[in-house]
Simulated assay, not measured.
Amino acid sequence: MTSFSYQYVVLRCVPRVDREEFLNVGVVLYCQATDYLDVSWDVDRDRLAAFAPQLDFDQVCDALAFVEGVCAGDRRGGAAAGHPIGQRFGFLKAPKSTVLQPGPVHGGVTEDPPADLARLRKRLVGVG
C-alpha cells in the first residue's frame, strides 16, 4: 500500500484564554497527497460543564460546526470555505484567541487518512 504524509491539529476548548487551560474537543487532519481535509470532534456536555460551568455548550458546538464547514468547503464555513483545501487547513491551524483554538501542528504517515483521523480523535480527545 502507498503511504502518505499528513498534518493535524488538535482543537482545544479554551474557556478563559488568560488561564491557558483547555480541553481537547477535536482533531483536524489534512493530507495534501490525497486532497483530504476533515475534522472529527466530540464534546462531552458533562465533562465541559465540570471544566467550565459558565461556558455555553452550544457556542462550542457551533464553532466546531464552522470547522466542519471549512473542511467540507460548504456554506457553514463562510468565506474560508471557498478557498483551496491547503489554504483552508492554513486558516484552521492559525492561532486564534477564541473559545476554540488549534494546538501545534503535528505530522504523521498514513495509508488511510479517515481511519487515522478517527484513531487520533479517540486517542487525543478521548470521548465518544
Score class of each variant (00 low, 15 high):
residue 77 G to V: 08
residue 123 R to F: 03
residue 54 Q to M: 14
residue 128 G to N: 10
residue 48 L to G: 00
residue 38 D to H: 13
residue 13 C to I: 08
residue 1 M to T: 10
residue 11 L to T: 00
residue 7 Q to P: 06
residue 55 L to T: 08
residue 15 P to S: 12
residue 11 L to G: 01
residue 86 G to R: 09
residue 102 P to A: 12
residue 83 H to N: 11
residue 55 L to V: 07
residue 38 D to A: 15
residue 49 A to L: 07
residue 113 P to Y: 03
residue 4 F to T: 03
residue 76 R to S: 14
residue 84 P to Q: 12
residue 34 T to N: 03
residue 17 V to N: 13
residue 102 P to H: 08
residue 78 G to W: 08
residue 14 V to Y: 01
residue 76 R to D: 11
residue 23 L to Q: 07
residue 128 G to W: 05
residue 3 S to R: 15
residue 19 R to M: 11
residue 65 A to C: 11
residue 104 P to W: 10
residue 89 F to E: 00
residue 78 G to N: 14
residue 39 V to M: 05
residue 67 V to K: 04
residue 109 V to H: 04
residue 20 E to V: 07
residue 127 V to F: 10
residue 107 G to E: 03
residue 93 K to H: 10
residue 93 K to I: 03
residue 54 Q to S: 13
residue 89 F to W: 07
residue 70 V to M: 05
residue 119 R to K: 14
residue 115 A to G: 13
residue 79 A to W: 04
residue 55 L to N: 08
residue 54 Q to L: 15
residue 36 Y to P: 01
residue 45 R to W: 07
residue 31 C to K: 02
residue 22 F to T: 00
residue 37 L to H: 02
residue 37 L to G: 06
residue 37 L to T: 05
residue 8 Y to W: 01
residue 24 N to H: 07
residue 114 P to Q: 06
residue 52 A to H: 04
residue 39 V to R: 00
residue 44 D to A: 13
residue 39 V to K: 00
residue 125 V to Y: 03
residue 37 L to Q: 03
residue 19 R to T: 12
residue 85 I to Y: 01
residue 101 Q to H: 10
residue 49 A to T: 09
residue 49 A to S: 12
residue 58 D to V: 02
residue 62 D to C: 14
residue 112 D to F: 05
residue 82 G to F: 10
residue 107 G to N: 03
residue 5 S to W: 02
residue 54 Q to V: 08
residue 89 F to K: 04
residue 52 A to Y: 01
residue 106 H to G: 00
